[in-house]
Design a binder for these strands. Structure first.
Lengths: 193, 193
DNA sequence: AAATGGGCTTGATCTATGTCAATGATTTTA
DNA sequence: TAAAATCATTGACATAGATCAAGCCCATTT
């Protein structure tokens, strides 16, 4: 159950098997069925999750009822509403399983304990968050300058895996365009080949 | 010269004066005149900077020649192209002083040394980057769902200080709209009051 | 004081994308 | 297997914001 977690941690830092044994005690395994929520808008994000299996989406809903996807989180990724998790303020996001999922959950107190007992995890999370920031900044700059078609082409280049697992209208709401526009963009690309 | 840095670090972690004395030796003071570049697109970002005085902007230029501003960095903030700094790949960004600035620069080797000698800095930078990620994620979600007017209103609410120091067309390119649109948005808001 | 130039505003268009609506196709549920 | 959702596509039309262009204001330089 913890193999993937162990592997992912080992890609970035070195810890002993004793340390990892302690680490394991801090996590709560959890299964989610497809369409089940890990977090709902208005609730406080009590857990940060490591995805062992499946894929989830984090999204918000605007006043007009449109959904906007912040990220997809397939197996091997960490997942949380960082702001709500850290501050205990109600979250603006929903986190929903797009497939049956297996997660490892950690609460804020356990997370704090982990950082305290095994300080090298400060480094681990610093690097994870750093990488996330770099990707998010790039995406932001892309939304400021690119056309719908450029965004889509960049997406399929960057995350070819997502395309098979995620319905098209969710890709659209990740890109910040409507499903209709995405459909038209795709048919234009196809027509040119 | 190092007062602000000391104060800012102390807001997040505790370090001894000896530790801070060591820390100081790793920084290189640097003054920039208004319009001078700290980093140009295509160069490798050799420094992370702490801003003691002044304000800078980080921006990129797209194929059509339009500028898109990633962030403004006033005094008390850290500043870098994280990706280029970490990987030594050429940067896609320009960093330009918008006023005469006083900076403290640290190279990658010195930064690594700092983290190694005073590991609590892992925590410090983790928290900084974490806060940056939270803000960037919110801004991204905003760009996906908000109108030009909503974005502008949120900006003046969130960063009232920037408005006085930064020319309006740069606020527009931060928001991802044209200067003309921002001008019209402002006149509409004014007309309603 | 004149000249230069950057920055802001305003007007007239243009365009990419959104909105609304209908039609099949495909998957899920009963 | 039928019924019901869900999803992708396509067409007609609407609109927010971009683009192009002109003029004005204010600061800096000559």
């Amino acid at each position: 159950m913890y193999e993937l977690l162990y592997q992912k941690i080992g890609e970035i830092i070195s810890i002993t098997t004793e340390e990892f044994d302690f680490c394991k005690t801090l996590f709560l395994p959890k299964k989610l069925r497809k369409r089940q929520y890990l977090l709902q808008d208005g609730d406080i994000c009590k857990y940060t999750a490591f995805v062992e299996k499946g894929i989830l989406r984090t999204y918000s809903v605007d006043e007009k009822g449109n959904e906007h996807i912040l990220q997809f989180s397939p197996e091997g990724w960490w997942l949380s509403d960082l702001y709500s998790f850290l501050t205990h303020e109600p979250s603006l996001f929903n986190i929903e399983a797009l497939e049956d999922c297996e997660l490892l959950l950690i609460t804020k107190p356990s997370w704090d304990l982990l950082l305290e007992k095994i300080p090298v995890f400060e480094r681990y999370f610093r690097i994870l968050i750093q990488n996330n920031l770099i990707v998010t900044q790039r995406r932001l700059m892309g939304t400021l300058s690119e056309t719908a078609e450029q965004k889509y082409l960049k997406l399929i280049e960057t995350y070819p895996g997502c395309l098979q697992r995620v319905p098209q209208h969710m890709l659209a709401s990740y890109l910040g365009i409507t499903p209709e526009t995405l459909s038209r963009v795709r048919s234009q690309i196809a027509a040119r080949k």
